[in-house]
Design a protein around this nucleic acid. Structure first.
Lengths: 330, 330
DNA sequence: CTGTTAGCGCATTCAC
DNA sequence: GTGAATGCGCTAACAG
């Protein structure tokens, strides 16, 4: 099944391929009559230009790259959903790649996007100043960072106002009655640090006991670490309030706490962050902070597309408003 | 930042570009000494061939297309995860597209893959004989269908043995004590039909009351429909066992049932299918059938890659063994 | 073993 | 308005 080319169309229509090309790119440069005629031939053979030839001839591609940490990450899913909506509506195509939290793979992903001459790149970076971002800057390909905040004035980025989200939760939680406050960070990510900073700045209670440098990332991690926390902080005796900086971990913590016979929220109140799908459906529906990740994807995609089409040339930094979601766990 | 080309390398190395090209594709055709020398120049400039030029010159691309219904679908996530692992290990790239359950969009997605000359395509089709599959066949691009079973001997496909899974659940469930059996189908998908067929063929109990043509697909749908079911089948009075053909819906059903004050599993036992992430973490951990979707993605990707590289030319149909997972809900 | 040549399919000057 | 010519970067014969 040989693909038909612009030459075939030109021959059939009795014109030169230059004219056919014009009909496709700048139709108004062609006399209406011949244009209509060529168009009909194109229709007849359902001719579609070869993207590689176009790209080689200098046209920008229509695919945008997207690099995330890992697919099973709830975050990615909603992000992809939002991005997809915007992207495909404008006939762009999405190329995805996972870094699996490995900076080397992350870098490799960006390289792949550059090699494939992506028109633009969306990246949820491991850190705002990782090598991948650096490479991206040098490549001159338009890009926007997701779930990340940076001071670099040349970089567009969109993220939730995590600090504000932490503050929101603190304001809510400090009205609750409890004897001690435990903060469980998750990973070392900027977003997490911001959440906790916002929380600590507004909780203004001396009894705060942050557990430092936890590397809990998943449900399983939360489940595992909960036992340790319960013992160390005597959760069974002291009424406590716990702020877990990410829902996925929080759900695991809750599961274990329940197993240990600790009542939630009466004995231990648990507050999360993210409002992932599970949060509303788990054992004890989670009180958390929502950051409409889907919007984040949508907005980032829009910013990127604007930059690609040169509509807007100035980098934009967008902060998404967090929203407190009160359910049963706290 | 002008990209350097094969000519630059050739010039710098004092050879013709044909030789450079050979070093990259069939190094053993080049004398070791010159090869080393050229390689060092390539290193020095970190030269990477332009994929478009390569494609235009006839080389197959290194990207494979993946069309799913929608990103938020739990199924997609695990699939993508499995596929990604195989694909990127072999330096292939993944291009994704969502159909949003719309056959027209599905078709458009496949068109996009064809236009971009995907080396191969993975498709979780709305139906085994939808237009998209047809187009794919005509395009001569290697492809394999996911989560789908077809009699067409030319088509490779991999799916769970849904019939067997249904049977498995039936065998387990029929040992339980209950007065009536209710089956809740979800959507009209082939996989669902298979599950129910397997279940019905092995439950051999007259009191089976299948609810016909339910279009429940999501948690919300399950939540909504549960009320109706509870009333219609007097769940509060009659001990019943319920088979919901998909976990996402089942979790919703359970949530509503609990709200209605119906005890699970003592009053109503609920069995699901899929074993999605939420199943283990929801209100009442779900008894369900697991089909290791990640493996499904992995296997499909492997089959596809084999076909692309011509290692295996015969279409293969792979059935994944389902596994009963007994938790609390039944 | 290596260089020369001829496309691959298209966009784009530049003439007419 | 339209056509002829050139180049995009690379691969694959075909010679030498």
């Amino acid at each position: 099944m040989k693909h038909i080319t612009i030459d075939d169309i030109a021959k059939e229509a009795g014109v030169s391929k230059a004219t056919v090309s014009r009909v496709l790119s700048r139709p108004n440069l062609v006399k209406e009559q011949t244009r209509e005629q060529i168009l009909s031939v194109i229709q007849k053979y359902s001719y579609i230009p070869n993207v590689f030839a176009q790209a080689l001839a200098g046209l920008p591609t229509k695919n945008i790259g997207f690099v995330v940490d890992e697919f099973p990450n709830n975050f990615y899913i909603d992000l992809a959903d939002g991005i997809d909506g915007i992207i495909t509506a404008r006939k762009y195509t999405l190329q995805v790649m996972s870094s699996l939290w490995d900076p080397e793979r992350e870098l490799q992903g960006i390289r792949s996007m550059i090699i494939n001459r992506a028109a633009g790149v969306l990246l949820a970076p491991s850190s705002p100043d990782c090598e991948a971002v650096d490479l991206l800057k040098r490549s001159k390909i338009p890009f926007v960072l997701l779930n990340c905040r940076t001071g670099d004035p040349d970089i567009s980025c969109v993220s939730c106002d995590n600090y504000q989200g932490g503050a929101l939760m603190a304001e809510y939680v400090k009205k609750l009655a409890f004897e001690q406050m435990v903060i469980l960070p998750v990973a070392d990510h900027q977003t997490v640090l911001d959440r906790i900073a916002g929380f600590e700045d507004h909780i203004n209670i001396k009894a705060v006991k942050p557990i430092l440098s936890s590397s809990a990332k998943t449900y399983q991690d939360g489940y595992r670490i909960a036992q340790f926390i319960a013992e160390t902080y005597h959760l069974a005796e002291k009424k406590t309030c716990m702020f877990v900086a990410n829902d996925y971990v929080a759900v695991g913590v809750i599961a274990k706490l329940l197993e240990l016979g600790i009542a939630i929220p009466s004995q231990v109140a648990v507050a999360g962050f993210d409002d992932i799908r599970i949060s509303a459906m788990c054992r004890i529906p989670l009180t958390t902070v929502s950051q409409s990740v889907c919007d984040m994807g949508r907005i980032a995609a829009e910013i990127l597309l604007d930059r690609i089409m040169q509509n807007k040339t100035a980098p934009v930094k967008h902060l998404i408003e967090p929203r407190l979601v009160i359910r049963e766990s706290a």
